[in-house]
Design a protein around this nucleic acid. Structure first.
Ligand SMILES: [Mn+2]
Ligand SMILES: [Mn+2]
Ligand SMILES: [Mn+2]
Ligand SMILES: [Mn+2]
Lengths: 216, 216
DNA sequence: TTCTTTTTTTAGATATAACTAAATATTAAT
DNA sequence: ATTAATATTTAGTTATATCTAAAAAAAGAA
């Protein structure tokens, strides 16, 4: 299993969460920041290894084996993120790039010992669920902030976008996992909302509200 | 800096410790378990990047920049080994292969935070010195067990060979870093020696004694 | 249905890092 | 000083993972 193969499997796994049915060559190409022709090549390779099901011109789907491999990469990525934040004082906007590298380290013992060392965390620093050894992962049963209505309350449990720029914006506004939010007002025109965290009230755009997961 | 380039620099660094003058193509090929022709190719590349000095048919030497890069890889390798043993309950014979992967992770912050997290260790689990950020590393001023004479005493401070098989042999004999050894007898014929650790006496071959570093 | 646009695949090229086999340079031996 | 052995380099090939450009298939519009 090469690093490139692993990255493709992970990309297909994440895309399958968002879209259903076969994942298109183009969608994969966009996610991987590569060209469709490169994707076709790799898909053939993964197909030969029975990690994806592929019929040309129809998209691909992960096989059970493919899903398991993808989940194990995601497991590693998220456990390493927890390690970086909890043990090495990284902030949540600094961890992703390093975890992209660490997720490819191959050692069963390493990742299981790390899991134990971290106290078997259930979520990573962005609120994303961490798969167990068998690839099982609790769903994001949570709801996006944008769907809440006036006077609704909830607790921030995750972010959909974990780009550094978005996370830094949240830091600046004092928005963090675990904080309680009350929706003070919602503007129908642009879907912006006025929210309250602790005693402070301020307005956020729909784009922001669309990337924050809440537990009601 | 590719993974392959890093591995070559590290190999040349280690070989420079043992031999002096230019390091031969063949010596590098043997260490890297590859072919001399591949080494020539890579050496040209490293030479273009001014990481080694190279004149064909004479060996290579690391430039200052080459030494610095090599030391930083070794620093990472050894710090990760400490992490695995101290924090994740690996044994000293299990860490090397995983550290071979981890040493290529690129993040200044990661390695410096790890260093701090581990309490700025000076030596790895095999007794090898850990270079600081600037590539400075305390020498192995220590002496090999094989050079001790009858009735000499010392403390085990390191191993020259860190292969899993050798380390497991040491474990089996109860030989570990920090233990006190007294040389009871030395057989001139084959250089084997009878040694005492705690109250136990047993015989070890020259090959063993040649791979254990002692502080007198 | 026929034409147009979009998507996907194929064909061919490039870069990296290997390898084998052959050529060349160096070193050792006679 | 030749010759023989060894070490090193060059030349040419392979595998992986990219890319561009062209061909082919599918989807959408007229
Ligand atoms: Mn991430
Ligand atoms: Mn994450
Ligand atoms: Mn090691
Ligand atoms: Mn070591």
């Amino acid at each position: 299993m090469t690093r490139s193969e692993e990255n493709y499997l992970k990309a297909i796994y994440h895309l399958s969460d968002t879209f259903d049915g076969g994942i298109s060559t183009n969608a994969i190409a966009e996610k991987m920041k590569t060209k469709a022709s490169s994707v076709t090549d790799m898909i053939k390779k993964l197909s030969e290894k029975e990690l994806v099901n592929y019929r040309r011109y129809k998209g691909v789907e992960l096989t059970e084996r493919g899903k398991l491999v993808a989940a194990s990469i995601i497991r590693k990525h998220r456990l390493w993120e927890v390690f970086l934040v909890d043990k090495l004082n990284f902030t949540w906007d600094e961890v992703h790039d390093v975890a992209e590298q660490l997720e490819h380290i191959k050692s069963e013992k390493l990742i299981n010992q790390l899991d134990e060392f971290l106290g078997f965390p259930k979520r990573d620093p962005h609120g994303d669920p961490i798969p167990d050894k068998d690839g099982n992962m609790s769903d994001h049963a949570d709801v996006l902030l944008v769907t809440l209505n006036k006077n609704d309350k909830g607790i921030i449990v995750g972010v959909k976008d974990s780009s550094s720029s978005f996370l830094k914006y949240l830091d600046k506004q004092g928005i963090a996992l675990g904080k309680k939010i009350k929706v003070i007002d919602k503007e129908p025109f642009d879907n912006s909302m006025k929210i309250r965290i602790k005693k402070e009230e301020f307005t956020i755009s729909q784009q922001i509200a669309n990337n924050i997961y809440m537990k009601k």
